[in-house]
Design a protein around this nucleic acid. Structure first.
Length: 884
RNA sequence: GGGAGCUUAGCUCAGUUGGUUUAGAGCGUCUGCCUUACAAGCAGAGGGUCGGGGGUUCGACUCCCUCAGCUCCCACCA
């Protein structure tokens, strides 16, 4: 069968993926082998594959495929996350587009829609991962809201509640007025935002609620909250305001009388030194309020609108209200001035709404003890972060963590298993039946009908922190005393986790907490933190910028192997990835190179009579050494998670060493056959190279490996053993490189002089050139005769140095003596400078006595080599001058 | 406001406890080639006083100090 000149991935990739699936090569069951486990960072169930997923999952796949080929029992568990707030807001938006308001639906009706949506869109992303070549064990696919995984979440809640770690209380939380839910501290993103500083006049009260003509000025960014003011606060040491002590002021517009209080929290130098205290709408103010027993007036509702307690502007959105109240204040004579002001404002990670600090009843998980252990896990090295600069960030977070607000005012998610008695007391239990039993202990008259379950669901991360446990064993989470099942005992702890640093705290840290709590062991050994995928200008990929390529389109255009390579080529751990389509093109080109190297080899016919040419013998010996050298290097890179370095080593081994040097050396003359020994050696090398490339480019390597020879039923490159490095002769490699230098030099001369490759040249060598490498020079530089000489070359040819050996190519009539002289002079000058620097070192007493012996010896060798080169150059110059 | 990190060729980055022929790679650039595996290719070439300054050392891209620029993380919005 004739192979086309270009590799076409389209049909090939689907064919092999289907075949891998059919043969169950991705499936893992516990056995006597060493396990290698990865759990996927579960993408949002309704998500669509983007470049970040490509990066992450390609890295995961490389690691898994490599481990599999190292003979380990590799298991990559896939799945999706229910992503409560993200999914719920998508469903709400979709319903709204259809004219349905969430408010008009019951919980059950809404969830029915949500599940329908999940069934329709859920899992799209998992199919997309298949296109990428991800070798996940699909039989183990999990979803964080699978019934048994949800059960694990509920059990975990009950467990922590009984342990006294979970409590319920009214606290100031981050309220998302668009998502209509509380969010955790980690879900709030602070961004510097330009706003205005409003300087407002608060008139002093005459004691009867009437304004006097005296006033103080208060600077605020939130004039719409003044109706909720409970006091005005000054610093007790602020002499400017001592006259205010004991007085009362009136809130503008509503003329409500509030006291002047003193608290050292107020900074005298900031603003006007007078702070309006609004306990319901500011965290600090809330704290001050507690200290001074101030009343709390909450004037903002779930949607961020002013409520009736505000008395004015009722029903207005907070930002609308701000605009309107500015005008009203101005008209009333209360607005002194406004000025531009930039300050950090919190935004919801999910909805991008400005977060409203708000008092509400929420559930919390105490973090102190959990964080302490999780910190220890990283500090002690039980979990390694790669790159380890993240250890600092991690420590800082762990040492400053606050209790985790785990309740969300949403419906999509695991519902909090707290059940309220009619009198307001509550019980926590894993099921309504158990809850009823518990409730009856409090009040024997309680019936199932009156017991009301908490409306809130749990934060998504409260389920995904169990992921490395619950994908294997759903009972163990929540039951640390239980025996792990067979899978969990075998696969836990997992080996490596590949994820982005943006979820280091959301997810990674909390998985470590859950692992320590329920397994008494960390969930993974290594956490490889990737960078963020950006475009080549360094901008984040975003829909609005339109700079985010669709991975599936790229796969269609270049093949999955090409996309994987393009992604990996620019990937170093922890650094942002500047992605550009040209890299994928490079990946596609590499596929083609491999394809064509195979076409060349496959086109050879073995001539049983032929003996092995000398050049081929050298090539085979050399590539054997080189292969082992690179294997060792690659193994080292893998061990340090330098995946793109490992790839680059292999890329160069294939392209430069194998194709450009090795194949050119063993290639038989046109029309001639190849000797059997060389053919078989070449096929064996090609086989090794395919295996080395396979983790990066699974499809083309399977295609060619299968094409190389008739394979047994169900035999796949996926499950072949990765070649391992054995000893090699570094001296041989170095001698070969010297021959290559000579070849490059002669090719350069050809190009300069316009000599065709076909025309054989003679070569004269003066000095110690390795005899065994001469066939390499002769074949690749087309040298027809070599002569040893003690004479320097003269003006009838070109002289050049290869290391310390002088070489000369006679070229009668083609030599420009002046030009050659200038070249030699320049080389001589350079060499003399070098010698001077070496000698400067050697003449330094302190260097000779202080530096290690081998360093000094090296300098002496440099000196000797340099002297020898200078001698050669000088002789050449003389000879050239003599021949003028 | 607090903390961490980065700055090496036109671009993206290596440089692994300071010494390996006076800094390496990939891409891009330039020159010459449609040579019968591959123009998605082949052959060759050019390109950096390692951000500035100072210090330690026999020796600094590598360690310390300092200045400048960039990035990220954390932080309760007067």
């Amino acid at each position: 069968m004739e192979l086309p000149a270009k590799y076409s991935p389209a049909g090939t990739e689907d064919k092999w993926y289907a075949w891998w699936l059919k043969n169950g090569f991705f499936h893992s069951e516990p056995d006597e082998r060493e396990p290698y486990t990865i759990v996927i960072p579960p993408p949002n169930v309704t998500g669509i594959l983007h470049m970040g997923h490509v990066l992450n999952n390609t890295l995961n796949d490389v690691l898994v495929r490599k481990a599999r080929m190292d003979g380990k029992n590799a298991c990559w568990v896939p799945g999706t996350d229910h992503a409560s707030i993200a999914t719920e807001s998508k469903v709400v938006a979709k319903l709204k587009a259809e004219g349905i308001n969430k408010e008009d639906l019951t919980r059950e009706e809404f969830l029915k829609y949500a599940w329908e949506w999940k069934e329709k869109h859920g899992g799209i992303i998992l199919n997309q991962l298949r296109k990428l070549g991800a070798s996940c064990d699909w039989d183990r696919t999990k979803f964080t809201m699978d019934p048994d995984l949800s059960e694990a979440v509920i059990n975990t809640f009950v467990y922590f509640y009984k342990k006294g770690y979970i409590y319920r209380g009214i606290r100031m939380v981050n309220w998302d007025p668009v998502g209509h839910t509380a969010v955790s501290d980690e879900e709030v993103i602070h961004r510097d935002t330009v706003s205005k500083f409003y300087h407002l006049r608060y008139f002093i009260s005459d004691g009867n609620g009437n304004p006097t003509d005296k006033y103080i000025i208060i600077a605020t960014t939130r004039p719409e909250t003044i109706m909720a003011d409970a006091a005005v606060c000054i610093n007790p040491d602020d002499e400017r305001y001592h006259w205010l002590k004991g007085k009362k002021v009136l809130i503008p517009l509503i003329n409500k009388e509030i006291p002047i209080i003193e608290d050292s929290y107020v900074e005298m130098g900031f603003g006007t030194g007078c702070l309006k205290v609004t306990p319901a709408h500011d965290v600090n103010d809330y704290e001050i309020g507690l200290r001074h027993n101030l009343p709390v007036t909450d004037i903002i509702d779930d949607h961020g609108r002013l409520n009736e307690k505000a008395q004015i502007l009722v029903g207005e959105d907070r930002f609308e209200a701000r605009k309107k109240i500015e005008k009203m204040l101005q008209e009333a004579g209360n607005l002194e001035k406004t000025e531009d002001y930039t300050s950090p404002v919190g935004y919801s990670e999910r909805t991008n709404a400005v977060i409203e600090p708000r008092l509400s009843m929420q559930w919390f998980l105490k973090m102190e003890a959990l964080a302490k252990d999780a910190l220890e896990s990283v500090e002690s090295g039980k979990v390694k972060l790669i790159p380890d600069k993240y250890r600092n960030t991690y420590r800082h977070w762990m040492e400053n963590v606050r209790d985790w607000c785990i309740s969300r005012q949403l419906w999509w998610g695991q519902r909090i298993p707290a059940y309220y008695l009619p009198d307001g007391r509550y019980v926590v239990a894993a099921s309504p039946e158990e809850a009823l039993e518990e409730a009856r202990k409090l009040d024997s008259t309680v019936t199932a009908g009156v017991l009301r379950q908490d409306d809130d669901v749990l934060d998504t991360w409260f389920s995904s922190w169990l992921w490395p446990i619950s994908v294997f064993d759903t009972h163990k989470a929540g039951h640390p005393e239980a025996e792990p099942n067979r899978d969990l005992a075998y696969y836990y702890p997992t080996n490596d986790l590949v994820t982005g640093p943006d979820i280091l705290f959301f997810w990674v840290a909390r998985m470590i907490m859950a692992g320590n709590e329920f397994m008494n062991d960390v969930p993974f050994r290594n956490v490889y933190l990737t960078g963020i995928v950006r475009d080549k200008l360094g901008r984040k990929m975003s829909k609005t910028l339109g700079n985010s390529p669709d991975p599936l389109e790229l796969i269609d255009k270049y093949g999955a192997d090409g996309v994987r390579l393009g992604m990996l080529l620019c990937t170093s751990a922890g650094n942002d990835i500047l992605f550009d389509e040209s890299q994928v093109e490079q990946g596609r080109n590499f596929c083609n190179k491999i394809w064509n190297a195979y076409r060349l080899m496959r086109g050879w016919s073995v001539d049983e009579e032929a003996s092995r040419p000398e050049a081929a013998s050298v090539a085979v010996a050399w590539f054997g050494h080189k292969l082992n050298a690179v294997l060792a290097e690659v193994e080292d890179h893998y061990s340090k998670f330098r995946i793109s370095d490992a790839l680059m080593c292999i890329y160069r081994l294939f392209w430069d060493d194998f194709c450009s040097w090795y194949l050119e050396l063993v290639k038989p003359a046109y029309g001639k056959g190849i000797d059997r020994g060389t053919y078989e050696a070449t096929a064996a090398f090609f086989d090794s190279l395919l295996k080395m490339i396979h983790p990066f480019m699974p499809f083309i390597t399977e295609e060619l490996w299968q094409n190389m020879e008739e394979r047994k039923e169900g035999e796949t490159i996926m499950l072949q053993r990765m070649p391992v490095s054995s000893s090699y002769d570094a001296g041989f490699i170095s001698r070969f490189e010297m021959a290559c230098e000579a070849v490059v030099a002669i090719r350069g001369i050809r190009q300069q002089k316009g000599l065709p490759q076909k025309e054989g040249l003679s070569l004269r060598i003066r000095g110690d050139f390795p005899e065994d490498m001469l066939p390499v020079v002769m074949k690749l530089a087309n040298v027809s005769s070599v002569e040893k000489s003690t004479e320097s070359g003269d003006a009838s040819g070109v002289t050049f140095m290869v290391r310390t050996v002088e070489m000369y190519v006679p070229l009668t009539g083609l030599v420009d003596v002046e030009e050659e002289l200038a070249k030699l002079q320049a080389a001589l000058e350079h060499q003399e400078k070098f010698l001077a620097s070496v000698r400067k070192k050697l003449s330094n007493e302190k260097f000779v006595s202080g530096a290690p012996e081998q360093v000094v010896a090296l300098e002496r060798r440099k000196e000797a080599d340099s002297l020898s080169k200078i001698g050669g150059l000088k002789a050449s110059i003389e000879a050239l001058k003599g021949g003028k």
